[in-house]
Design a protein around this nucleic acid. Structure first.
Lengths: 193, 193
DNA sequence: GGTGGGCATTGAACTAGGACAAGAAATGAT
DNA sequence: ATCATTTCTTGTCCTAGTTCAATGCCCACC
């Protein structure tokens, strides 16, 4: 049951059996049906979720009511809102919603603290996780600014080949920062040659 | 000499005198004249720099030769390329260049490792640093996708009021993901009312 | 086995912002 | 001081992508 998450967390730091036992004992297993909003804007995010199975999206809603998808999370992804009110007075505008029936391991902030106390080397694993996450986000920012819609879509297909089969196209458009209609036109153009 | 960096690193985790001494002993103080490129694309970034004084920019160059600025680093900022080849075969396209005469504390990957070994609680401080960094980058991605050029510029002025006085406007345009000419037009429009 | 509500596609009209060019203003080196 | 280089502005034309609206599609659901 825990092999999947243990492999994932051990990718950049190797842990002893004992450390992994502590880790596993602090996780909460949870099933969530599809189309469930797990976090609304303005709420404090009191979990960090590891996706065992399923697919979620994390998104902002902008001033005009348009959604901007920040992340698709599929198997082995960690999903959470880590913003913890940097933009102080304004509550976080992040939503997290399941797109399929999902299975998670959930981690509360308290159990995370406890983990770091009892097995400090996890701090390292989560630092590296953050670092990779940041790197991916920076790359995506770069793409968003400097590439055309078609280039972005092509790279998306390369990086996340399984996602288009799992989520609606207008979600992908929202992730790429283009309109659903225009993505459709881009695809039509690509199909022609 | 070390109070500035020690205050900065102690912002989210408090350290003992001894821990800070270890930290400080591993830092290398360095002065770099303006207009120096400290990291070229394709190189491995072998430092993490804390800006004591001065201003740098970190930027990508896209396929058409256009620069996209990822970060302005001023006093108390940490600057580095943390991408460590996630997009494996392709070398990092990141440049780091001083825009003013700068003073840094530099940190090599080796001394960072040594720090984490000798004072593991720093792992936590750097994790939180990463987390904040990620949060800021996500917010910026959201802005880039969902706001107009003028909105982006206005928010930039609010968030970084001192930077426009220190760097050329076309750099700010590049940071915002708009052309230098268009930023000029936005400013003209704002001046009118 | 219809039917109703999200999805995708396509087209036409529109616009935010880009590309290019040329001049003005600031900055810096000698 | 002067000349050169970089930076900023302004105008014109242009295009990638948006918005809106119409149509058909594909299911899930009773």
């Amino acid at each position: 049951m825990y092999t999947q998450i243990n492999n994932s967390i051990s990718r950049y730091v190797s842990f002893t059996e004992e450390e992994l036992n502590i880790f596993n004992s602090l996780l909460e297993h949870k099933k969530v049906p599809k189309k469930t909003i797990m976090l609304h804007e303005g709420e404090m995010c009191n979990f960090e979720a590891f996706v065992i199975k399923g697919c979620i999206r994390k998104y902002f809603i902008d001033a005009n009511g348009f959604e901007v998808i920040l992340q698709f999370g599929i198997e082995n992804a960690w999903v959470s809102d880590i913003s913890f009110s940097i933009y102080e007075d304004k509550p976080s505008q992040v939503f997290i919603e399941t797109l399929e029936d999902c299975e998670f391991f959930m981690f509360s902030p308290e159990s995370k603290e406890m983990l770091f106390e009892r097995a400090p080397r996890f701090e390292r694993a989560f630092r590296i996780l953050m670092q990779r996450n940041l790197s991916v986000t920076q790359h995506r920012l770069f793409n968003t600014i400097s590439k055309t819609a078609m280039e972005k879509y092509v790279e998306f297909l390369e990086l996340y080949p399984t996602i288009p089969q799992r989520v609606a196209q207008h979600y992908i458009a929202s992730y790429l920062g283009i309109s659903a209609e225009f993505l459709s036109k881009v695809r039509a153009k690509m199909a022609k040659g």
